[in-house]
Each structure stands twice: as structure tokens, then as C-alpha cells.
């Protein structure tokens, strides 16, 4: 079976700064994979590279949305909207919702890529377009229900509590029907109860929707409990990879984090 995402020797420079150097990683279907590393290690840059916001200097990014087949597709350097269309959706570290739109409308934007009505169809509003519109609203509402924020449907996105805003970002990404969900620090700023709830939600997304998940996170407890596999970045280089247990006991990782003993269970 092919990995759903296979990154090979990805490099990215900003001027003289090597933000990423020969990063290789792969994610298989239904895996929850985490990308960790100290601040400034290049995690978000990595996300931006594979989602098309930055164009990598070198390297390849292969995806195969149907891992049973052997075909894989290189998406390196494509535009972000094309990559989303191909089935990779992301959230942002600093929440980037459409603040003045309602919660439901935010999710409806996610449906954009799977619907078709153009200008002329929108003006004429024939039966096909009307049905499509209705389906957009229904589908979006169902996604809100799945993420548990349907009560806020008609609220302005900016008025939502912080945890719900994070969830809305996930809901919006789910609306694009991805096979791989990329979460950039989904638990940042959440209280412990919200974090546990988020973990359950992520597991549920994996089980019910068959979506693989790659996430960046600083909350070690959260990562260790949730993930099947962990990749560790430091100064733009991959310094370790493996199961949570292996990572916890890896001296290189501990050194990168603290330069001394570091208690992962803290």
C-alpha cells in the first residue's frame, strides 16, 4: 500500500536561512501523525510547503488519495487551492476564520471546492443550482454537528469562544472532503478539558471519515496519547521519527528540547 502522503527530500530556504533541509516523511492511511519540535524548528514552514503556500526549493511531495492503487501524484509547487481540491485540507496556527461571516457560512466556504455553480448559474438559479445550494447548507450543518458546534450555526465566527473557533477551523477543513487533514497546533490555547475533547474529536474523524491526520502540537501529553507516529524537527532537520514510546526515550530529542533531562509526562 502506498502512503497517502510521501514527502521526499523537501528543502526550503528563506534567503540564506535553511528553514527545511531534506525532510522526508510518509503518512499511511488512517494514521494520526504528529510533527513536533522546538519553536522555530520549521514545522509551520513544512505545512506551508506541502499545502502550496510556499514553493519548496527542492524535493517532491507525492499524494495518493486511493492508496490501493499504485499511482501517485507529485503536488510539489501547485497552488494552495488546487492542493485543497486534491484532498489535503489544513487549519492555521493563528486562527484564520472568516470573522464577519456566520459559522455556517464559514463551513459553506469549505464546500466551494466540491460544488460548481458559476456566475450564470447563480443568476438564473435553476433547479440544479437551487438543489446544490440546499445541499451546501445541509452538508455544512451536518459537519457542524459532527464537530459539535451546531448551536453556533448562525453566530458570527468572531463571537465564538476560543475552543469553538478552533473546532470551526477543523469543521471548515472537513467540508472540503479531504483524505488528509493538516492541523497546525489545534490545541493551542485550550484548557485541559477542551484538549481532551479535541483528542476525541480527532480520533472520531479518523475512524468515521477515514481521514488521515498530520498535526503540529506542543502539548506533549496530547501528542503522546493520540498519535501513532511522531516526527521531530529541529533547526529545519528531521532528527528523529518513530512511535511515541521511542520518541520519549530518544536522547537526541530530549537534548533538542531541553539540552538535559525532560519529562514528557509533565
Amino acid at each position: 500500500m502506498n502512503p497517502v502522503l510521501e514527502v521526499s527530500k523537501l528543502s526550503m530556504n528563506f534567503g540564506g536561512l535553511k528553514a527545511l533541509e531534506n525532510i522526508s516523511l510518509d503518512i499511511f492511511q488512517n494514521e494520526i501523525v504528529s510533527l513536533i519540535g522546538p519553536n522555530g524548528a520549521g514545522k509551520t514552514t513544512f505545512f506551508n510547503c506541502i499545502t502550496g503556500i510556499y514553493t519548496p526549493v527542492s524535493g517532491d511531495i507525492f499524494i495518493s488519495s486511493l492508496p490501493q492503487k499504485t499511482e501517485k501524484e507529485n503536488i510539489c509547487g501547485l497552488k494552495p487551492n488546487i492542493i485543497t481540491k486534491k484532498g489535503m485540507a489544513r487549519t492555521f496556527q493563528n486562527i484564520r476564520l472568516f470573522q464577519n461571516m456566520t459559522v455556517l457560512e464559514n463551513v459553506m466556504i469549505g464546500r466551494h471546492v466540491r460544488t460548481h455553480a458559476g456566475i450564470i448559474a447563480s443568476v438564473l438559479k435553476l433547479k440544479k443550482t437551487r438543489n446544490e445550494e440546499k445541499k451546501i447548507v445541509d452538508d455544512s450543518y451536518n459537519i457542524l454537528k459532527k464537530t459539535g458546534i451546531e448551536n453556533f450555526a448562525n453566530e458570527k465566527a468572531s463571537t465564538l469562544p476560543y475552543g469553538a473557533q478552533r473546532k470551526l477551523e477543523i469543521a471548515r477543513a472537513l467540508a472540503t472532503e479531504p483524505f488528509l487533514l493538516l492541523l497546525d497546533e489545534p490545541a493551542a490555547g485550550m484548557n485541559p478539558a477542551e484538549t481532551i475533547e479535541l483528542g476525541l474529536l480527532i480520533k472520531e474523524i479518523r475512524e468515521k471519515e477515514n481521514i488521515s491526520i498530520l498535526l503540529i502540537e506542543h502539548d506533549m501529553k496530547f501528542v503522546m496519547n493520540l498519535c501513532d507516529k511522531i516526527f521531530v524537527l529541529d533547526y529545519g532537520k528531521k532528527i528523529a521519527s518513530g512511535t511515541p514510546d521511542a520518541i520519549q526515550n530518544n536522547p537526541v530529542v530530549i537534548k533538542a528540547y531541553l539540552g538535559e533531562d525532560f519529562d514528557f509526562d509533565a
Partner: peptide
């Protein structure tokens, strides 16, 4: 409207 709100998020949501 989404484009007006946030261009990067808009693209990441698959809008050309």
C-alpha cells in the same frame, strides 16, 4: 466575501 475577509484562508479552503 471570504476573499475580502482572509485571502490566505480563502485559498487554503480551495477557492481559486
Amino acid at each position: 466575501i471570504a476573499l475580502k475577509e482572509d485571502e490566505v484562508a480563502c485559498q487554503a479552503m480551495g477557492i481559486d
